[in-house]
Simulated scan of single mutants.
Amino acid sequence: MMKVKRALLSVSDKTGIVELGKALADLGIEIISTGGTMRTLKEAGVPVMAVQDVTGFPEMMDGRVKTLHPKIHGAILAVRDNPSHVQDMKDHGITPIDLVVVNLYPFQQTIAKPGVTLAEAIENIDIGGPCMVRASAKNNKYVAIVTNPAKYGAIIDILKKDGEFTDAYRLELAREAFQHTAQYDTAIAAYLSEQVEKGAAD
């Protein structure tokens, strides 16, 4: 097990994120964040570093491109006991991320609104979020991925007590994360199938 030193927080559902951010900061854990999450944390007085300060690139294309960068995904995917991965991190100035807290754009809620257009639905298909979730879940030996705000209390308690997570707990979080992205993609596929069928009917 390794101590959690750096966390990335990027959530659509802001429930409990300030309390989590404050707890992480109080434990001396560095926080990286994006867009609305970063503003919410800053307004609450939580010290936070912008993703663009890590990557060297601004958020662009109306927020479509924020976290899709080697300094984020390399920090998540690096195998910490693989010498070549460690050397790559050193060579490219990549600092590992140990905890990733992400939940996705509200696609299901968007398409449930009366009169929603296909374009509006498409804009609420998250890209960077699922990439981070899946990368973190894949690398669960080293990274804890949290997609459910109901888990924040347990995360805080574990970090206060131990400062790190067991392999078994990270694996459980990874399982939940893959369920989260699977349900998300299933909802998108079902919606697009409906649109295709409507087009065929027209």
Rank of each mutant, 00 (worst) to 15 (best):
I127V: 13
L99V: 12
D91L: 15
A154H: 06
Y142V: 07
D81S: 15
M89D: 07
N139M: 12
P114G: 04
V86M: 13
V102I: 15
L159N: 10
I156D: 02
N103L: 00
A75Y: 08
V146H: 13
Q109H: 11
N140L: 03
N139K: 07
I97D: 09
T110G: 05
D81M: 08
A137W: 05
N140Q: 10
N82L: 14
V101I: 14
S84Y: 12
L77P: 00
S136I: 05
L118K: 13
A78D: 08
N103W: 00
S136L: 06
A137Q: 03
D88P: 00
Y105Q: 08
H85F: 12
E123L: 11
P83Q: 06
F165N: 04
N140H: 15
V116K: 05
G74Y: 08
D88I: 07
G93S: 14
A135D: 15
D162P: 01
P114Y: 03
K160V: 03
F107Y: 05
E120D: 10
A75D: 06
P149I: 00
H73Y: 14
V133C: 05
T147P: 00
K161W: 01
I125G: 04
K113T: 06
I94T: 08
Y142R: 09
A78G: 15
N103H: 00
N139V: 07
K141L: 07
P96S: 08
G128A: 13
V86D: 11
D126E: 06
L104C: 06
A144M: 14
K113L: 09
P96A: 10
G74C: 07
K160Y: 02
G153H: 05
V100G: 09
A75L: 05
I155E: 02
G115A: 03
P83V: 04
G115K: 04
Q108C: 08
I158M: 11
R134D: 15
I111G: 06
E120R: 02
C131L: 09
K160G: 02
T95A: 10
Y142W: 15
P96W: 08
Q87F: 01
I145S: 01
I158F: 06
T95N: 07
V116E: 08
H85A: 15
N124Y: 01
P130S: 11
L104H: 01
A78L: 07
L118W: 06
K90M: 11
D91N: 15
Y152P: 01
Y142G: 10
D162A: 09
Y105S: 04
E123H: 11
V79S: 11
G163Y: 05
L99M: 12
A154E: 14
D91W: 12
T110I: 12
N139I: 07
Q87Y: 01
I125S: 06
C131N: 08
L159V: 09
R134P: 04
K151T: 05
I122W: 03
S84Q: 13
A75G: 07
A135Q: 05
H92G: 03
E123Y: 06
K160S: 03
V86G: 04
I76T: 07
